[in-house]
Design a protein around this nucleic acid. Structure first.
Lengths: 234, 234
DNA sequence: ACCTGAACACCGTTCAAGT
DNA sequence: ACCTGAACACCGTTCAAGT
C-alpha cells in the first residue's frame, strides 16, 4: 500500500495566490520566499520548482492584478468617457491591492497581459481619431495612472493627534510654509483636520485624468492641426 | 607623544557625500551600510555614530538632491513660465542623480527642505491668482513631476539587437498589439529603431507639464468661476 | 569620543541529497 | 517528481568591549 500524500502538491497558481494573500494582508515586504514557504507548509527552496525566482513571482503577482483591470466593454462608445472608465477601473483593482504599485514599478518589461492593457487604452484613444503621436504623448502623461495609481510623494504624513502639538505645528507652518498651510486648509473636507488626512484620493485621481484627457481633446481639435495629421511621424 | 590619527574622523557630511557618490556611480542598491563602511575605510557599525540608521541616511541623501532643485529667482515673473522653469529645474537635478527617485518615493514625510520646495511651487501658482483649491488639485496632478521625475512604468524595455529577432518581434506585435506598434513607430525619432528606445524623456516631461499647467490656466479662467473663488473652501 | 568584534535575525539562492 | 538540509553570500542592527 502506497502512503497517501499528506497535502496537496504545490502548483504555480497556489504559490502565486498565497503570495497575493500575504501581500494583501501584511504588505509586499512580508512576501519573502521563506515566509511564503512557511505559509504553504513547505521549505523555502521547494518554491523554486514552481517559480524561477522571486522576480518571476512578482511578475506573476502583477499579472493577476493587471488582469483585474481588464474592461471588455466600456459603457460608452465615445473615446473620452471610455478612456476615463478604463482608468477608473484600473484604479479600483489597485485599490484592492495597495501593495501592487510597488511591485509594478519594479517590473522592467511589460508582460503580454500588460501589453493587452496598453493596447486597449491606445485603441480607445485612436478610436477618437487622435493621431498616433498625440496618443503617444498622452500615454506618457498618464504615466502610472494607466495602472490606476499616482505616486503621491510625501502624501502619507499624518497630523499629530495631540491637540497642543497640532496647534504648535500649525503655528510653525503658518510662519515658515504659509502657502502650504493655506492650500492644505483649502483641500480639507473636514475643517477640523486641516493638515493632511483630509485629502480625497479618488477625487484627485479623477481631477488629474480629466485635465489630461481634456488637454488631449483640446490639442486634437487645435486649429494648428499639428496633432491631427495621421500619416506623419510627428 | 600622542599617536596622530591615521585618517580624518568621520562626519555626517562625509558619510552622506560618500553614499551619494556610490549611488551616482553604482546605483542605490549598492549603498549598503556595509559597502559604505568599506568605502570609508571603516567597519559598518561605525556609521551608526553619524546616522541613526539607514532610513535617516536616505533622508539626508534625498535632502541634498532636493536642495539642488532650489531655484531662487525664476527668470519670469509670470506664474506659468515660472512654474515651468521650476519643474524643469527639478528635472535637471533628478537627471544628475538617477537613483534619487527611488529614494524619494520611499520617504514617508516631507523634510523641511522638501517643504521649502513645495512652498516655492505653491507660492508661484498662487501668485497667478489661482485659488487654493485649484492649486491643491494641480499639485496632486503634478505628483512626482514636482520632484523632477515621472514614473515611466515599463519604459525601459530595450528592443532586441539581433535584426532577425527584431523583425520577428515586430511581426508578432503587428498581429497581437497593432495599436501599440503604431504608436511606438509614431514616437520614434529614428525610424530604424521603432520599438522602444526612440523616446525623448525630456520632451515627454515638457509635454506633460504643459498639459497640466495649460489645464490649470483654463480652469482658472473658466466662466463658471468655480476655481476662482479665493475665500471659499471649494 | 570614536571605532571594533562578535553576534542576532533576517534575506535570495545553489547544490547535492533524500524519498 | 517533488521536496529537504546544509551552506553561501549577503542584509540592517544591537551590545559589550576596546583604545
Amino acid at each position: 500500500m502506497a502512503t497517501p500524500p499528506l497535502r496537496e502538491p504545490l502548483t504555480q497558481q497556489r504559490v502565486v495566490e498565497r503570495a497575493i494573500e500575504i501581500a494583501d494582508s501584511d504588505g509586499l515586504d512580508a512576501v519573502s520566499m521563506r515566509a511564503l514557504g512557511d505559509a504553504l507548509g513547505v521549505v523555502p527552496m521547494a518554491l523554486y520548482k514552481h517559480v524561477a525566482n522571486k522576480d518571476q513571482l512578482l511578475d506573476l503577482m502583477v499579472d493577476v492584478i493587471v488582469l483585474e483591470m481588464r474592461l471588455e466593454h466600456p459603457s460608452s462608445a465615445a473615446w473620452k468617457p471610455a478612456a476615463r472608465e478604463r482608468l477608473l477601473y484600473a484604479r479600483t483593482a489597485m485599490e484592492n491591492h495597495p501593495w501592487a504599485w510597488r511591485a509594478i514599478e519594479t517590473r522592467e518589461a511589460p508582460s503580454p497581459v500588460a501589453l493587452d492593457h496598453i493596447e486597449a487604452m491606445i485603441a480607445t484613444l485612436r478610436s477618437g481619431g487622435l493621431s498616433p503621436r498625440l496618443v503617444h504623448h498622452v500615454m506618457h502623461t498618464l504615466g502610472s495612472r494607466l495602472w490606476g495609481f499616482a505616486q503621491e510623494v510625501f502624501a502619507s504624513a499624518p497630523p499629530p493627534t495631540d491637540p497642543a502639538q497640532l496647534e504648535a505645528a500649525m503655528a510653525f507652518m503658518a510662519q515658515r510654509w504659509p502657502h502650504v498651510l493655506e492650500v492644505a486648509a483649502a483641500s480639507s473636507h473636514d475643517p477640523n483636520t486641516v493638515v493632511g488626512g483630509g485629502c480625497d484620493d479618488a477625487a484627485e485621481f479623477a481631477f488629474a485624468i480629466d485635465v489630461i484627457l481634456d488637454g488631449a481633446e483640446a490639442l486634437h481639435h487645435a486649429p494648428s492641426r499639428e496633432w491631427a495629421l495621421p500619416d506623419s511621424n510627428r
